[in-house]
Structures are given as structure tokens and as C-alpha cells.
Simulated scan of single mutants.
Amino acid sequence: MGRPVIVAITGLLLAVTPGCARQENGGERDTSPRRDGIRHSQVKTPRTGVHTGRRAVPSAGCSRRAPLTGRHSFRGRSYLLKRPRGDGRIPAPLIIDLHGLRSSAFLQALYARMPTQGSARGFIVVQPESARGRSGWKLPGMRGGRSDIRYVRGLLDHLESELCVDRAREYATGFSNGAGLAAALVCGLGGRLAGVAPVAGLNLARPCPGARPTTIVAFHGTADRTVPYRGGEPYGGDRTKIPAWMRPADGVFALPPVPAVARQWARSFRCATAVRGSRGAGVGRLSHPGCRNGTRVELYTIEGGGHIWPGAFRLGGGAARDQINATTIILNAFSRSA
């Protein structure tokens, strides 16, 4: 892909539910009206056979003609949109996919392949661009650290007005700096999201007291030198690699260990006792099931893995591991969440 593209993707720091397929393809739709006059839909997707067991909460956009797949704009920033097949009039779950530092929506789409795989399973996938001149996301703890949380909130409102979204099934994922924002949205959006999946960046955002239980599925390599798995300073302490706008307001650069952050989320959600397992050689899985509201917290640890998206092609961020595919696991997890 050439060195500029590799640098763009790997210099990344502090840097799902089968959706609603076309009814004529065999989906079963319940359009019984509620007392508020809104019709909710309950859909079984023929492609996967997964039934959510719950009624969808349609957005205002269900009464409008859906915009085409492609690049669109909101508040001066562009975003990529990929819709599932169909006429766009049945509520579909939505995934916000956030790129890493010095990357872009387009490069994230190539790297994680969330638009192609997610839309094939009935998800609307949206990949926004960060603010012009930053090429990354502001996180809590930075100066102006809530600006991108506010932007994502506004973007979700915009998407709900333009698309037929199941408002009960909105999710976020991201890589590195984008993973940090995905995790920060659990608290920042006040429980609006049904699930988040941070890849190589769970410990960039701290859990908050009283957070609404949210399914969290995280991935991290133990040999990650950009966002260290065991905690400490990013980039091995080389602060010259951290843009000035990204530096913490209090000047403290140390990150907590990834497993400690996962445990903190699990305690906050009152999850059951953790269960340890594996997903093949070199990949550990720590699962905290039985959290409130049917949620769970899962951490996939890739032994010797670098700053990578598991299952994606290697781009210089350290050792890759092919035993698991993060995109598939994320979509499976979002498909099962209530």
C-alpha cells in the first residue's frame, strides 16, 4: 500500500445483530402499533437466522427515502455510509466505526472491513472523519475532551433523522485512538449505545461511576508499544509522537493496564464472576457474563500481538495474529445484544 498509507494507519494513538433484511426476502415483521402511535418492528434476518426477541424502536428516518451509500457530510465533517440491501424502510441496527490517529474513514474501512461485512449482516455502518487539522479524536482528560463526544451525539441524531435506524441497537467500535472514543461513549452518551468494541485502546478512556450497563467487547495485544497493554506511557514514553492537542490537561501520561480497566467496567455493571478461556493458541478470553440488563464485558488478549486489528492484514503495527477475526467477533457480539 506504500509507506504513507502504512504510517497513516499504524501511527494510531490515544492514537451488531443481524439487522433488518428486506421483508420480501423472508423477514418476519410485526407492525402492531404502540400506544404512542409508533409502529415497532420485530424482524428475523434470513441470512443468519438470529432473532432479537425484542421490538425495534424505529427512528424518524423510517418515514423518509434513505440516502445512498457513499460519502456524506454533517457539521463540516464527512462520513462514509454503507447501508444493507433493501429499501431502507425497516429499522436496522447502526454501527459507528472510528478510525485511529493519522488515519481516515476510508483507511479504516479497508483495514477493519466493517462496512462490507457489517452491511452483509444487516447493519448500517457509518465511518466519520475526525475534525479537520486533527486527524484524531479528542478524549476525556484532554483539553476540550468532550468535543468529539458531542459530535458523535449530534451525528447519531442526524443519522436517525435521515435513516431508518433501530434506536435500541446503536453501537460503536474503533481502532486505537478511535477505540478510546468508542469506550468513552459508554459514559459520554449516557447509556445510549447498546454495545461498544474497542480494538487496541480500551484503556484510553476511564470507566465512570454509575455508567449504564453496556456490552463491551475489547481486543488488545500484549506487545502493543503504542497503547501499552500493561499500562504506562504511550509510545514507550516518547512524547514527541503525541500531538500537542492530544496531551492530557493534567500532564499525566500514564495509562492503566487493560485487564484492570475491563475489571473496573465489570464491577460497575455488577457482572458475575469472570470466566477465563481461550480462542486458539495465543489468544485468551476473559469474559464477565451476567451483567445488569443482560450485558457482558469481554476482553480478548492476543499474546505477543502488536498494535493491530486481529484478523486484518499486517501494516507494521507489530506482530499480527490470525487465530481470531475481530470484525467477525464484534458483529457476532452486537448481533446477540439486546
Results as ranks from 00 to 15, higher is better:
Y79L: 02
Y79K: 02
Y79D: 03
Y79M: 02
L80G: 12
L80V: 05
K82L: 09
P84V: 15
D87R: 10
D87E: 12
G88S: 09
G88F: 09
R89F: 06
I90M: 15
I90L: 07
I90P: 05
P91A: 01
P91T: 00
P91S: 00
P93C: 05
P93W: 03
L94P: 03
L94A: 05
L94H: 03
I95Q: 08
I95K: 07
I95M: 13
I96K: 07
I96D: 06
I96P: 04
D97Q: 06
H99W: 11
L101R: 09
R102Y: 14
S103N: 13
S103V: 06
S103G: 05
S104L: 03
S104R: 01
F106A: 14
Q108F: 08
L110Q: 15
Y111H: 08
A112L: 07
A112E: 13
R113Q: 10
M114G: 08
M114P: 05
Q117Y: 09
Q117M: 11
G118L: 04
A120P: 12
A120G: 13
A120Y: 14
R121L: 15
R121A: 10
G122H: 04
F123K: 02
I124N: 04
I124T: 06
I124A: 03
V125Q: 06
V125R: 06
V126I: 13
V126S: 12
V126E: 08
P128Q: 11
P128L: 11
E129I: 07
E129K: 07
S130H: 12
A131E: 13
A131V: 09
A131R: 11
A131L: 09
G133D: 13
R134I: 03
R134L: 14
S135G: 10
W137Q: 05
K138P: 08
K138G: 15
K138W: 11
L139P: 09
P140R: 02
G141F: 02
G141D: 01
M142S: 12
R143D: 15
R143Q: 13
R143I: 14
R143P: 07
R143S: 10
G144Q: 04
G144A: 03
G145K: 00
G145L: 00
R146Y: 04
S147Y: 02
D148G: 14
I149C: 05
R150D: 05
Y151M: 06
Y151F: 11
V152R: 05
V152F: 12
R153Q: 12
R153G: 10
L156D: 01
D157P: 09
H158L: 02
L159S: 09
E160T: 05
S161V: 00
E162C: 11
C164F: 01
V165A: 00
V165Q: 00
D166V: 01
R167T: 02
R167N: 00
A168Y: 01
R169Y: 00
Y171K: 01
Y171T: 01
Y171F: 08
Y171M: 05
Y171C: 03
A172Q: 03
T173P: 07
G174Q: 06
G174M: 13
F175Q: 09
F175E: 04
F175L: 14
S176G: 11
S176A: 08
N177A: 15
G178C: 03
A179E: 13
A179L: 06
G180Q: 10
A182K: 04
A184G: 02
V186C: 06
V186T: 12
V186W: 06
V186M: 07
C187E: 12
C187D: 07
G188L: 03
G191L: 00
